[in-house]
Design a protein around this nucleic acid. Sequence first.
DNA 1: TGACACATGTAACGTGTTACATGATTCG
DNA 2: CGAATCATGTAACACGTTACATGTGTCA
Lengths: 179, 179
Amino acid sequence: MAKRNILQFIILGLLNQQARTGYELTKAFDSDIGEFWSAQHSQIYPQLQRLEADGQIIHSDEVSGEKLNRKRYAVTSAGQAALNDWLAADTEPTIGGRDEFALKLYFIKSPSDPRLQRMLAEQQAFHTQKCAHLQAQMAAKFPERQHADDFGHYLVLDHAIRRETAYVQWLQSASEQLA
Amino acid sequence: MAKRNILQFIILGLLNQQARTGYELTKAFDSDIGEFWSAQHSQIYPQLQRLEADGQIIHSDEVSGEKLNRKRYAVTSAGQAALNDWLAADTEPTIGGRDEFALKLYFIKSPSDPRLQRMLAEQQAFHTQKCAHLQAQMAAKFPERQHADDFGHYLVLDHAIRRETAYVQWLQSASEQLA
DNA sequence: TGACACATGTAACGTGTTACATGATTCG
DNA sequence: CGAATCATGTAACACGTTACATGTGTCA
């Protein structure tokens, strides 16, 4: 698992794009970058407090309505420095993520096991749909392949699509080899 | 993260293939299934104790030399039942694993950023080599595509190769789009 | 006899998930 | 006025890594 508290740098990166509230950060983990990292609000709010205590971000209060006070966070120059250090540092290459389904297949030794067909079909349905969803996103956000701006966003979407496509192809290939 | 203690089932699966010691289990996580799950011995030994207390595995003492006593674990019928329940249960599809490098790219907005080339090259070298290594393993273990036996092993190797290949292609494509 | 692999455990810490807890705003 | 969403926090627990700790067997 992550060891060097990656979360703090992701938050710095997101805040460096634009000032956000904890709530908005939480949503960001469910959309764009959700394909490659996730975090709950229960992890985000304490991390924001630590980053602020550390002088890497500051918040300004924003009142809406009568009472509601939300904290909008922005990176300080110290935060930008920390972010740049992270970006510049060598990156430990991703080693195979955990895949419960792959393990189940590993433990089913026979290509004629009666459970295989159903298992493969179920996963294939899911990943095929996900793939379609990602491609729709790509078409919506980069209609004319104009990804010179927001290059990073384009790259992660492309990454996710390739990953899901490869997954579906693996499942397909496995299905075809059932005895 | 994993929520239902997947580790216990992986151990049951491995022990169901053959009786093993904790040390041998630890090594198994570094070879075959290491592409899709990892665990240290500090996690494995306590889990073995819990599984035995639960009646899902039993150990027999094995002495080598004068004093050295190793515990060789085997699954009980209760353990086999638990394993089969896990295999038969619906599998939550894998949602994007965490990828620190992808996130770094996400935060580098411009295709002309001077850091990009070096970063991409570094990752590409790593994943290309890994890909080659996996393909060598495949060639060594399944020389004649005779994967009717050990089908599961073949599938996870194939999966790993496809994943790494897709990763390299993504990096390659990204490199070609640098401004 | 020294290095390395075999072998088994525990402790401390950090990260991540789920649940608990509370309240405001907006829109139908 | 009720439901959904916005908004922020804490607590308990599960999972995973790193470090600590100890000792044996084998081979050069």
